[in-house]
């Protein structure tokens, strides 16, 4: 009698697959089903009050002005915050990569520290820094600029949150980029220098192609992560002022846990999910040196 042989790989993967199924695939499928229903407090009281509504939640969302507002705010945060964050990471990584810099590990640890700090605690501290009479006002005052009502003015609330997020997150990307920079062969720099390339030419034609795969990875992860912004506005502004910091996840949270429209909120989650899947499908056009 022949028994079909199960690959040992399955056995090794089984615990992880089991955990993924129970805690990831299962809930995702359940959330999708929920997004097709009108699950609300009445359904919470009794499932008798639950209706299957097809894609009505999705259609309704597309006609909700606040949803589009949240979508625009999220894009603002992601498409301004992520490039800024990567630029800061790259600058910090390049600074750390200069051979003349002393006490490298100390600097590296110091710059990485914000990433390790608890997000909520850091946000609370930043709320004080950004508040009236806080450190930011002092700095503006010292250089002769008028004070800005960072978290109270709809025009400045998002820049303030971006500033915070950049400070909080750049350390992680900095480490990845630093590792990539250290892998760029010194010969290439020397050769470029012999050919008469200045610092900018060396950056553009040696550094960037050399770290392009890492840069692309960092860009993707950071943008995807920034699309999921929630805790920053939740702790610092509660979506205000004038809904200027309501992001998709904050909108979903309010919809789901404040008004308890879980069906509606699940639909929001799936729209965000679709955006992120679309984002991760982006690939760089093949160029020299790009994998």
């Amino acid at each position: 009698m022949r028994t079909r042989r199960l690959s040992p790989g399955f056995l090794f993967a089984a615990p992880a697959l089991f955990v993924l199924t129970v805690f990831f695939f299962g809930p995702v499928c359940a959330a999708f089903v929920m997004s097709l229903t009108d699950f609300d407090i009445y359904a919470l009281a009794s499932l008798h009050n639950l209706r299957f509504v097809g894609f009505a939640n999705y259609l309704d969302l597309l006609q909700t002005p606040l949803f589009w507002r949240a979508f625009a705010n999220t894009c603002y945060f992601a498409f301004v915050g992520a490039p800024l964050s990567i630029a800061v990471s790259l600058i910090a990584a390049m600074a750390l990569n200069v051979p003349a810099v002393r006490l490298k590990s100390l600097h590296r640890t110091a710059l990485f520290a914000p990433y390790v700090a608890s997000l909520v605690a850091a946000a609370v501290v930043w709320r004080y820094l950004l508040g009236s009479g806080g450190a930011f006002d002092e700095i503006l005052h010292a250089i002769g600029l008028p004070a800005v009502d960072w978290l109270g003015d709809p025009r400045w609330s998002m820049p303030a949150i971006i500033l915070f997020a950049v400070w909080k997150n750049f350390g992680y990307n900095m480490l990845i980029l630093l590792a990539a920079l250290q892998n760029v062969p010194q010969d290439l720099y020397d050769a470029a220098r012999v050919d008469g390339a200045g610092p900018w030419m060396r950056f553009h034609h040696v550094t960037v192609p050399g770290i392009a795969p890492s840069l692309w990875l960092v860009a993707l992860l950071t943008t995807a992560g920034y699309f999921q912004i929630f805790a920053e506005p939740y702790v610092m502004t509660q979506g205000g002022p004038a809904q200027s910091t309501v992001t998709l996840l904050y909108f979903m949270y309010q919809d789901g846990f404040k008004w308890w429209n879980l069906g509606h909120a699940s639909a929001t989650a799936f729209i965000l999910f679709a955006v992120l899947v679309g984002l991760s499908l982006l690939r760089p056009r093949t160029r020299e040196g790009v994998a």
Binding site: P27, A30, A31, L44, S46, L47, L262
Partner: peptide
């Protein structure tokens, strides 16, 4: 029915 809902929600949302 009631039990099912409670357990489902307890694990999913709360």
């Amino acid at each position: 029915m009631k039990l099912d809902r409670r357990h489902l929600l307890a694990s999913a949302a709360a």
